[in-house]
């Protein structure tokens, strides 16, 4: 693991942005830092870039101390949330900036800088845009210029801060796959901050989920989705319904129903299930009783709101027509196909 982050904390006055955080990032890996706003993910990225210093902790890169290097010595290509393109420079001048500011002895010749700039323009599919100014580009084009500018310095790692945060949904999706291909081509170790779980799951080799300045879980997207380590992770990775339950003799008791639950735990639990993994049965079928309080047709799926006591649950029905008798005010039985349980009090 070339990038090793050990015991990093960052305090701003009274508030602590990062708590004793440990993380390792592999060579050529594409890692997503996923978390809600205020979880400390951007703080961690800025520490790696050298724009802020941690209060305590160590970071090493390829066995050498990273924190003792200044931001300009780190060769960490950073792509900022709003791109931070130099507005008075052309696209080509933006991309070549990192080469032009090198000390004279390391600076490539003007022709070499131009050649590399053209190459990068091709790589980010912006050939012919070199003479434009950032204000003459669309959001997606600016994003790619920022990417090319960061790649121009032959970075040892790429740090992307919500790179698609300012783009509309369609462009986001297009650029997402483009970015993944670009990473596979260039092979630069990349750390990518986002609050969009779909983006993180789609793109990354591994995802680190941050909450309140701590890492909740690190792992491959599928592993995290299949076995979330904490209620926060389960909740953050998609819509979730929560019910209180009791585990006894290999069974999960939820309301007036019992569900088989392999494993040998017992005691009070929080039981979570996804809205789209629920079977809807008639009142004499399997599952716990609930009242349908709302039916909203939304494209391919139908959203049901069901109430049990003071708990309102959301069910997404995507299997064609709703079963007979499922209307507003009906009593139905709900049988989640899969539960994820955590001990009560977590």
């Amino acid at each position: 693991m070339p990038l090793i982050i050990k015991n990093i904390s960052k305090t701003y006055g009274q508030s602590q942005a990062l708590h004793n955080l440990d993380l390792e990032v592999g060579d050529r890996e594409f890692l997503a830092l996923l978390g809600p706003s205020g979880s400390g993910k951007t703080t961690l990225l800025r520490i790696l870039a050298g724009l802020i210093s941690p209060t305590t902790g160590d970071v090493s890169f390829d066995g050498a101390d990273l924190l003792s290097l200044s931001a300009r010595e780190r060769r960490a290509g950073m792509v900022f949330q709003h791109y931070a393109l130099f507005r008075h420079m052309t696209v080509a001048a933006n991309i070549g900036f990192g080469l032009r500011v090198r000390p004279r002895r390391d600076r490539p010749s003007a022709e070499e800088i131009k050649r590399r700039t053209d190459e990068l323009l091709r790589l980010v599919q912006l050939e012919g845009y070199g003479a434009r100014y950032p204000s003459q580009l669309s959001g997606g084009q600016r994003q790619r210029v920022a990417q090319a500018r960061a790649l121009a310095i032959e970075p040892r790692m790429l740090l992307l801060d919500e790179p698609f945060g300012a783009l509309d949904a369609k462009v986001r999706r297009e650029l997402r796959y483009w970015l993944r291909r670009l990473h596979d081509e260039t092979g630069v170790t990349t750390i990518f901050v986002t609050h969009d779980q779909e983006e993180a799951m789609d793109l990354a080799d591994r995802v680190a989920i941050l909450n309140g300045g701590k890492i909740e879980q690190v792992g491959a997207p599928n592993d995290i989705y299949a076995s979330p380590a904490t209620p926060f992770v389960f909740d953050f990775l998609g819509a979730a319904n929560e019910a209180r339950g009791l585990v006894r003799d290999g069974e999960l008791h939820v309301y007036d129903a019992r569900f088989p639950l392999p494993g040998d735990g017992s005691g009070e639990v929080k039981a979570f299930f996804r809205p789209h993994e629920v079977e809807i049965n008639p009142a004499d079928g399997r599952g716990f009783m609930a009242e349908v309080v709302g039916v909203i047709a939304r494209g391919p799926a139908t959203r049901l709101e069901c109430r049990r006591g003071d708990q309102v649950m959301e069910i997404d029905w995507a299997r064609g027509r709703l079963p007979d008798g499922v209307t507003r005010g009906a009593q139905v039985r709900l049988a989640p196909e899969r539960f994820t349980v955590f001990p009560a009090g977590t």
Binding site: L51, G77, M78, F80, V101
Partner: peptide, 8 residues
């Protein structure tokens, strides 16, 4: 900040 991370 961008300029500094680019080595300026």
């Amino acid at each position: 900040e961008a300029a500094i991370t680019l080595g300026a």
